[in-house]
Simulated assay, not measured.
Amino acid sequence: MKIPVLEKFMFDEPSIWVTAATVVALIFTAYLGLAELIGNHLQYSKFATSNSDQGIKVSGRTGFLIFYTPAFLAGLLSFFVFPATGDLRFLLLKFAVIFVHKYSGDVILGSTILISISYFSIAACLIVVHYLSLGLPEPSFDLKYIGLIVFTLGIFGNFYHHNLLAKLRKPNEKVYKIPQGGLFNLVICPHYLFEILVFWAFYFISQTPMAFACAFGDSIYLISRSYMTRKWYVNKFEDFPKNVKCVIPYVF
Rank of each mutant, 00 (worst) to 15 (best):
I16L: 14
I223Y: 09
K236R: 12
F237N: 02
K144M: 15
N235C: 06
E138S: 12
N172C: 03
W200S: 06
M210R: 03
K102W: 10
L136T: 03
L73K: 06
F11P: 01
I3Q: 00
I66Y: 05
L136A: 04
A166H: 10
F199M: 03
L143G: 13
H191I: 02
G217C: 04
S140N: 14
V198P: 12
I122F: 15
V251S: 06
W232C: 06
I117A: 12
L164Y: 07
L148C: 03
E7R: 14
A74W: 14
N235Y: 08
G110P: 05
K144L: 11
L136I: 00
I188F: 05
W17T: 01
L42H: 10
N40Y: 11
A213C: 01
I66P: 02
K144Y: 11
Y44Q: 04
P14E: 07
I122G: 08
N51Q: 15
E138I: 07
D53W: 10
I248M: 05
F204V: 00
Y31D: 13
V107L: 01
G135W: 11
S111H: 09
V234P: 05
L92H: 07
Y44V: 04
Y160C: 04
L65M: 10
F11S: 05
Y145G: 01
T49N: 13
G39R: 08
C246L: 10
D87R: 05
G39H: 11
Y145M: 05
D87G: 01
V150W: 07
I38C: 10
V128L: 01
L197P: 08
R89D: 06
P190Q: 03
F252Q: 01
Y203H: 00
L73S: 06
P14K: 12
L193F: 13
I127H: 08
K46C: 02
G39V: 02
K8G: 15
A215F: 14
F99E: 02
L26R: 05
T112C: 15
S50D: 15
Y176S: 09
S45E: 12
F237M: 03
V18H: 12
I16F: 11
F204D: 00
Y160K: 05
